[in-house]
Amino acid sequence: MALPTYKSDVEAVDALAKAYRDLKAEIGKVIIGQDEVVKTVLISLFSNGHSLLVGVPGLAKTLLVSTISEVLDLNFKRVQFTPDLMPSDITGSEILGEDRRFEFNEGPLFANIVLADEINRTPPKTQAALLEAMQERSVTVSGDRHLLPSPFFVLATQNPIEQEGTYPLPEAQLDRFMFNIPLDYPTYEQEIAVVKGTTGMKVSDVSHVLSGEEILYFQQLVRKIPISDNVLEYAVSLTTKTRPNTPRATENVNKYISWGAGPRASQYLVLGAKCHAAISGKYSPDIEDVQAIAKYVLRHRIVRNYKAEAEGITEENVIEGLF
């Protein structure tokens, strides 16, 4: 598919905003409600980042990811993470071919969108294999490096209420996710619409909106969007405020946080703000764009201490006090 040509970057940003609206409309044919979740996932895709979806079972996390992949006309693979899953089960392995030579057999990571379902149910060894794929966009098998398709996104799900038999994700792996996105129950009216739509004969068909090449183009466009120094400095200041016992730390951070966010948070705040501005019809982000995505960037990068847990202080409570 040939990429469209735009007369200017302004026209290209307008095209990105229109593509986002078209994507939301198509996804809305299948996914009822969860508007903020859909918006945030699409921002991470256009920013070339991975997302972690956290919610109880039955909130259509898997359906959401598969619908997004269909609307984007991308290759989609789903991996159900289990305690006995080995790294080779996701990366692929070398097998002996008919000519008596070893050849690489690609695993499910070789897709444009990979759904890592219940990622915290697999041991650290397999989580580490996924970590390399997320960071390097490649896997190493038997000493050979194999590049993954482009674009490449990992959308992982995690159940927050069932912790028995799980392996909590290490902070290094959590840091690779651009966003940590909580999913909540639908409203009463939304649930009525969901039940009506899923217990009858009607089947919702979605149309392809964007190709992989167009997504790669828009990812580069997002990086080209200018950002003023004061907005960039505001994004960095949010990150530095989360670090306890440092000059910029707030009182609540010193009181309730044992570990703050690293520089990758500042990078994702800037990229996310640029994309949020673009899909909102703006050509440069402002402080409100940074604030709009801050909780998704920071909530999995700060570690509460025992005092916060004892007093029921959440990560969101601390983040809101940074603004």
Score class of each variant (00 low, 15 high):
32 I>K: 13
22 D>A: 14
116 A>D: 02
159 N>S: 08
265 A>G: 07
197 G>R: 07
297 V>Q: 01
159 N>W: 00
134 M>K: 06
79 V>M: 04
99 D>G: 07
265 A>D: 05
41 V>L: 09
235 A>Y: 08
322 L>W: 07
150 S>G: 01
286 D>M: 10
174 L>N: 00
13 V>D: 09
22 D>I: 11
84 D>N: 09
127 Q>V: 05
148 L>A: 11
88 S>H: 01
45 L>H: 09
184 D>C: 08
180 N>R: 10
214 E>V: 15
255 K>M: 12
322 L>E: 09
142 S>D: 15
155 L>M: 13
261 A>G: 02
230 N>C: 12
69 S>L: 03
154 V>E: 06
316 E>T: 13
106 E>I: 07
295 K>Q: 08
10 V>S: 06
145 R>H: 13
217 Y>F: 15
230 N>V: 11
283 Y>T: 07
182 P>D: 06
278 A>S: 05
286 D>S: 11
239 T>A: 13
194 V>L: 10
41 V>W: 10
305 N>C: 03
174 L>M: 14
16 L>F: 09
11 E>P: 10
7 K>W: 12
24 K>P: 12
75 N>K: 13
141 V>T: 09
238 L>N: 05
238 L>D: 04
150 S>Q: 12
274 K>M: 04
297 V>H: 04
138 S>E: 06
161 I>G: 00
193 A>Y: 01
40 T>I: 11
103 E>C: 04
285 P>V: 10
189 E>A: 15
219 Q>A: 15
225 I>G: 03
104 F>C: 08
176 R>H: 05
274 K>L: 00
291 Q>A: 00
187 T>C: 12
178 M>R: 11
235 A>N: 08
275 C>R: 02
285 P>F: 15
262 G>A: 14
247 P>K: 03
214 E>Q: 14
323 F>D: 00
274 K>V: 00
153 F>Q: 00
